[in-house]
Design a protein around this nucleic acid. Structure first.
Length: 547
RNA sequence: GCCCCGGUAGCUCAAUUGGAUAGAGCAACGGUCUUCUAAACCGUAGGUCACAGAUUCGAAUUCUGUCCGGGGUACCA
């Protein structure tokens, strides 16, 4: 509809003003009005042309309108307003026809195939197996999965990837922490190492360790079994948590692979050849200052161990070697200083980094009794994602995490979540869906077997047309989501759709003595139901038939 | 110090990326179920869009500076 009008305007000015405009691009827009008085669509074309043509916008608008009047069958009326906006009023029949389109396309309504044959890798969560997933990870998990679903809706083939490291200092500490808890169960008091893991979950793991091995590993603190046992247990729980949220990764990539397949050495050698590194104080440094960084960074410590940066770089060369058309990395705000180094290194080695898109999301702050709490996995001070799902349920958790812009901090009030699950906004959407399902069921009881022959021309009430207008926005919203990769827009949209449905429901009855009208309204609500169900499925949220 | 986010109603956040009278949900107050689900709807109240400049027909949105909050700035990941 918008493109339709836009093309019409473009043609008109090309015809009328081509001599003056010449090859200049006129950047005008056609947008949905946010006020009924301004019609359905409005264009600023006359305002944009005013400075080029050196005429008053109103005069230009009048000339344009004269030209296009009656040239488009969906336009009911055109008005010119104050500074020079051209407002279009669209015919009801245009909106009514949407019902038929939704009903016939159903699950495929406005679904696109833009990504057909294209592969995208989305990397997210990527938490090392040192403890259960926290609320903080939850945001990234839901964000990553929902973005994946948006891409899939557009026909892309998405691979969800999880990158992890089960070696190194953190893991050693994890193993030692488990050992301490293990010995504790065997009656010996030891101290958790400095920077070790103090969370309760280690005690649980220690219990199953005892169950399995008894006293076999008493006093064998250095045995690798402690690390392996801990990571294995933790990974199982991480995967379970994600599964509860309907999130399943396709690939778990172990950092270890990069050492085994020689990628790490390869990267170091290549960067050396390119003259991007140097040795100093026994370490190997990357000249990041040449890429605008403040300081040079260490790639290999004097101990010979790489810093986290090196495997990150190697991992990305690995990603780029595969045939993905796009690579999306989802990181927390704490990564903002490190990923530019990775990109710089890839550029040094002549990789095309334009395929890589990095999305940073801000942190989740846990609020409890009106106090902000800093979460730390190490100190065991956190609320796990599992606990949150227990309290609120998967649907609410998913909705909650994509409800807001990823750029804004998220304050999570745990008391509120516990107390007010009934008033959660997600129920508002699901309730609308369930209500519709119920009305359709009711209509069958009232003897309306089918409503395929309902006459959409009978949908004339303001509340009915309003709903159809919102449905007509769906395509644009999905486009916005695709471009910005920001699922929040879809959440806002659904809320808006639910609002107009509830308003309609309150004011008008669907099933009445008037069979014809009932059938047409059943068609209407069926089409709303389809939109709900499609959108909720993109958000990974259930669309219940009753509540 | 430097880098990245944010600052909008009492609270949590929107504003389709520069459009017209800045909107929702909680919280407050008042109203609506003999009817297809009241987990809903209607109404009232609530705003110096942090502050100051700049850009233009037009700014919450872009630019500059200042203030406040969060994150980063490791030979931790």
């Amino acid at each position: 509809m918008i493109n339709n009008i836009k093309q019409l305007l473009k043609n008109t000015i090309n015809k009328k003003y081509s001599e003056i405009i010449g090859s200049q691009q006129v950047n005008f827009t056609v947008e949905r009005s946010n006020n009924d008085k301004h019609g359905d669509l409005s264009s600023n074309i006359a305002l944009k042309l005013a400075s080029i043509l050196k005429k008053s916008p109103t005069v230009i608008a009048e000339n344009i309108v004269k030209e296009i009047q009656n040239k488009n069958e969906i336009i009911e009326n055109i008005e010119i307003v104050k500074p020079g906006f051209i407002n279009f009023f669209i015919k009801n029949s245009y909106y009514q026809n949407i019902v038929e389109e939704v009903l016939s396309k159903n699950r495929k309504y406005k679904k696109t195939n833009l990504g057909k044959g294209k592969k995208i890798q989305v990397e997210f969560v990527s938490a090392n197996p040192t403890g259960p997933l926290t609320i903080g990870h939850g945001r990234q998990a839901v964000l990553g999965d929902t973005i994946s679903r948006i891409l899939e809706w557009n026909g892309y083939e998405v691979t969800r990837e999880y990158y992890f490291n089960d070696a190194g200092r953190q893991m050693r500490l994890l193993g030692e922490s488990l050992y301490v808890r293990y010995m504790e169960l065997l009656g010996e008091k030891l101290k958790i190492p400095v920077d070790g893991y103090e969370g309760e979950y280690i005690k649980d793991i220690a219990k199953s360790f005892v169950k399995k091995y008894g006293e076999k590993y008493k006093n064998k603190s250095t045995d690798k079994i402690f690390i392996d046992f801990a990571t294995e247990n933790i990974f199982v729980s991480i995967k379970n948590t994600l599964k509860r949220l309907n999130i399943v990764h396709d690939v778990f990539f172990n950092e270890k692979t990069l050492y085994e397949n020689g990628k790490i050495d390869e990267v170091i050698k290549k960067m050396e050849q390119k003259g991007a590194t140097y040795k100093s104080e026994g370490a190997i440094w990357f000249k990041t200052t040449e890429f605008g960084a403040e300081k040079d960074r260490v790639l290999v410590k004097k101990s010979g161990e790489p810093t986290y940066r090196l495997p990150d770089i190697a991992y990305h060369t690995e990603k780029l070697m595969q045939d993905y058309d796009q690579i999306i990395d989802i990181f927390g705000a704490d990564h903002h200083a490190t990923y530019p180094d990775v990109i710089s290194a890839l550029k040094v080695m002549d990789y095309d980094t334009s395929k890589i898109k990095v999305l940073l999301h801000q942190f989740v702050t846990l609020v409890r009794k009106n106090k902000k709490i800093k979460m730390s996995t190490r100190k065991g001070d956190f609320v796990t994602l599992d606990e949150l799902i227990d309290i609120a349920g998967s649907d609410v958790v998913r909705y909650f995490f994509i409800m807001r812009n990823m750029d804004s901090h998220l304050n999570f009030d745990i008391d509120l979540a516990q107390k007010e699950t009934d008033e959660n906004p997600v129920y508002y959407l699901q309730y609308a869906h369930a209500r519709i399902a119920n009305v359709i069921k009711h209509s069958k009881l009232k003897g309306i077997e089918s409503f395929e022959d309902g006459n959409i021309g009978l949908l004339k009430e303001k509340e009915e047309i309003d709903i159809l207008k919102v449905i007509s926005e769906f395509e644009g919203i999905m486009e916005l989501c695709r471009i910005t990769l920001e699922p929040m827009h879809l959440a806002n949209y659904l809320h808006k759709l639910a609002t107009c449905f509830h308003k309609f429901y309150q004011k008008h009855r669907v099933v009445t003595e008037d069979k014809e009208l009932s059938k047409s309204r059943l068609k209407l609500i069926k089409s709303i139901k389809i939109i709900f169900s499609n959108c909720l499925s993109i958000l990974g949220i259930e669309a219940p038939e009753n509540m």
